[in-house]
Design a protein around this nucleic acid. Structure first.
Ligand SMILES: [Mn+2]
Ligand SMILES: [Mn+2]
Ligand SMILES: [Mn+2]
Ligand SMILES: [Mn+2]
Lengths: 224, 224
DNA sequence: TTCGTACTTTAGCCTCGTCTAAATTTAGAC
DNA sequence: GTCTAAATTTAGACGAGGCTAAAGTACGAA
């Protein structure tokens, strides 16, 4: 079985919304994320339901079937592995790879992605810290909480980003907030929820609550 | 400017036919090579002419404009570089890469192919011995003659293949006819034009005239 | 010079994926 | 329980890219 580029992008979008907001996934949520019109989404939902990739009940949103979820997971696997390739091998920055991977994920081949996986030495996370499903579709959810949920004095490691826009990633670059950095909450400003952070060897950094809510961290269990 | 996948494949096809048979390129020649119908080709030719990628006169075939030729050359560059990647980095055999490269050549990015080129160390020939245009579209024609045009006693190096089908390439593999091998014509059978070849360290190999006409060689200027 | 045939184009139709505008349904407010 | 606003679907259209069948053109043979 093989699906069109458009069908694949819909499946991936439904998967991502379901992951964040749960099921059922609404027509308008899909339209928003795909920058398309609800009417177009409805048309496509009928096709995907016809192919047993989603469960669809008129006016009540959709959820992926087993087959749909499996296909979506494979797309995510391909997207993230290609992002690794672009960053690790071709030297792209993490804010430049999404659009290209969005295309590369649709390349049809029974063997390509597994060979790429091996070539990259089977990475477990992509450049944005997102987990890469294995060939069977399995992946371990990253242990994570939002930076905005930490308290003063707590230490953590930056493990992922919730927002993937270029501007946001470039902002992080400019402030030396790369995946893996160690940080500590020095202060939480009560007025607007801004955070003052300590980064290794640097002056304290002030970030907005808005930013803190887009960063996933793994808390360091208070040593000793 | 950007073109659709279908438009790009037509440009590439026209380029290849023109390279072999010269201009003008006929509607039916394009239809044959693309496995489509002449009526469909006519429709597309009108669109390409509208976009000034080809010169088209009804009933009299087409030729590429400067812009069309430039675009086609870039597609060929991308196709061949991706083939290098698949063979050199992912370990594919030369008979397995065409279909995948046929898709990869359409990935849209201003920077991707030049980065890939650098990553591969700027190869000058693809796995089939075909020259790879540089970023400006320039490439040196490989020095070549057909193996079938050699005479008894002449020595040569296999530098390219005229046919790219899997079955043909696998046939070559089975007979140790890889690019770069040294060979000598031992005998030409008058009845059907078959050739008996000497390959290094091996028993003589008999190939048909049909095969010999699909192999490009560079003659070794008779030493001493 | 006139045919006859092969090649090419046109006409009309189809599917895919999108759109706008209009109709319908749901669900919350009262 | 009704009503209304928001969400969703339907109806009708379009462009891209393909097809078949029919019509038109070119060109070599006689
Ligand atoms: Mn995509
Ligand atoms: Mn990513
Ligand atoms: Mn192609
Ligand atoms: Mn090739």
């Amino acid at each position: 079985m093989t699906y069109t580029l458009a069908e694949e992008d819909y499946l991936k979008t439904i998967y991502k919304i379901a992951e964040r907001q749960g099921v059922p996934v609404s027509t308008s949520a899909i339209a928003d994320l795909m920058q398309t019109r609800p009417a177009s989404v409805t048309d496509m939902l009928k096709k995907l339901a016809e192919k047993d990739l989603i469960d669809y009940k008129r006016y009540h949103g959709v959820s992926l079937t087993k087959a749909g979820a499996r296909w979506a997971t494979q797309l995510i696997r391909k997207h993230r592995l290609w992002e690794c390739f672009l960053v690790d091998k071709l030297g792209y920055n993490w804010d430049e790879v999404h659009e290209i991977a969005e295309q590369l994920e649709h390349i049809q081949s029974d063997t390509l992605i597994d060979r790429l996986d091996d070539y990259l030495k089977n990475p477990k996370f992509d450049p944005h810290g997102d987990p890469i499903p294995d060939a069977s579709g399995a992946y371990r959810m990253r242990y994570q909480i939002l930076l905005s949920d930490l308290e003063i004095g707590q230490q953590a490691i930056l493990v992922g980003v919730r927002e993937h826009t270029s501007t946001f990633l470039q902002y992080l670059d400019q402030n030396n907030l790369a995946l893996g950095v160690n940080l500590e909450i020095l202060e939480v400003l009560p007025y607007d929820g801004s955070l003052r952070l300590r980064l290794a060897e640097e002056n304290p950094l002030l970030i907005s609550g808005q930013v803190a809510r887009q960063l996933y961290v793994r808390q360091i269990t208070s040593a000793v």
